[in-house]
Amino acid sequence: MVLNARVTGYDVLRVFCGPRGGHGNELGVVREGSVLPDPADRQEFAAKLGFSETVFVDDPERGVVDIYTPTLRLPFAGHPCVGTAWLLDVPELVTPAGVVGARQDGEFSWIEARPEWAPPRTLRRYGSAAEVDALPVPPPGEWIYAWAWEDEAAGRVRARAFPGRIDERGDSRSGGAGACTGGIDEDEATGAAALLLTARLGRALNIRQGAGSQILTAPQPGGWVEVGGRVVLER
C-alpha cells in the first residue's frame, strides 16, 4: 500500500504558541479521515509524518476525531484537541475518552477535559524558575513535568517536560515536541500535563513551558479543567 496515494492532504499546526506566535507543538491534522479508515493504516501514516501527534477527523461537523502518536493510538491528548478544535471551529470534539468541550476566545482556543483522561505524569516541584531552567535532561525513566512558581500570587508557572522514554529504535532523539511519543529529550508544550497540574493545585495557571510556549488553564465545576492556547496554521 502507498499511503501518499490515499491521503490527499493534511494541515500542520503549532499549538500553545507564545505571545508572538513562536514555539508551540507541531500537530498534523487529516481533515478527511475517511480516506484512511483503517487504524493500522492510520498508525503507519502517523509514523510516516513523524509529528508528536496526528489527528484524523472522522466527522468534521460533530467533531469526531481519532488521535495517534507515531507508535500508538490515544483516547485523548491536550494539544491535538486544542489545535483541532481551532481548525474545525466546533463547540465540541468527540474522542474515545469522552466529549471535549471547545470554544474560541479572541486569540486563544480552549478545550474542557477531565484530568483522569490524561496519562500519568510525575509532577515535580522546584524552588524557583531558575532551577527549572537549569535542569539537565534526566536519564530515561519516568515522565517528569518539572515546574516552579514564577509568581504564585498571579498563578504564573515555569515548566519543562521530560518524556524520559526511548523510541522503538532504541535511540533517544532531541528536538521536536511530543506528549506521548518518546524518542525526544524534552517536550515543548504539553496540555495533558498542564491539565494534571491545574487539577492538583486547584487554580487557574499561566504556564511558560519549554523554549517559549504558553499554556493557560482554569479549573471548572464538576472536576473539569479548561486548557487553552494560541494556534498557528503552518501549512
Rank of each mutant, 00 (worst) to 15 (best):
N206R: 11
G50V: 08
G155C: 10
E186R: 07
G210M: 14
G83M: 07
V90P: 08
G212H: 05
A204Q: 07
A46R: 02
T190C: 13
H23S: 12
E142C: 01
D66I: 00
E61I: 07
G33Y: 00
P75E: 09
G228F: 11
S172W: 00
V55W: 02
L13N: 10
G182E: 09
Q43G: 15
E32F: 01
L197H: 13
A113I: 06
V15H: 08
W110S: 11
R124E: 13
E53L: 04
A192Q: 10
S174D: 04
Q43N: 08
R121T: 07
G18A: 01
A130H: 07
G183L: 07
T54P: 09
T8R: 15
L87S: 02
A192R: 14
I207P: 11
A113Y: 05
V90L: 05
Y126G: 11
R160A: 03
R125V: 09
D58V: 00
V55P: 04
I111G: 12
A161I: 12
D167A: 15
V132S: 00
P139A: 06
L93W: 06
G155Y: 07
G83T: 05
E186D: 07
R156V: 11
L93Q: 06
Q214T: 15
R156D: 08
N25D: 05
A193C: 06
P139I: 01
D167E: 09
G127K: 01
A113H: 13
D187M: 00
P219I: 01
D41S: 00
R156P: 12
D151H: 14
H79I: 03
G222E: 06
H23C: 08
F162R: 15
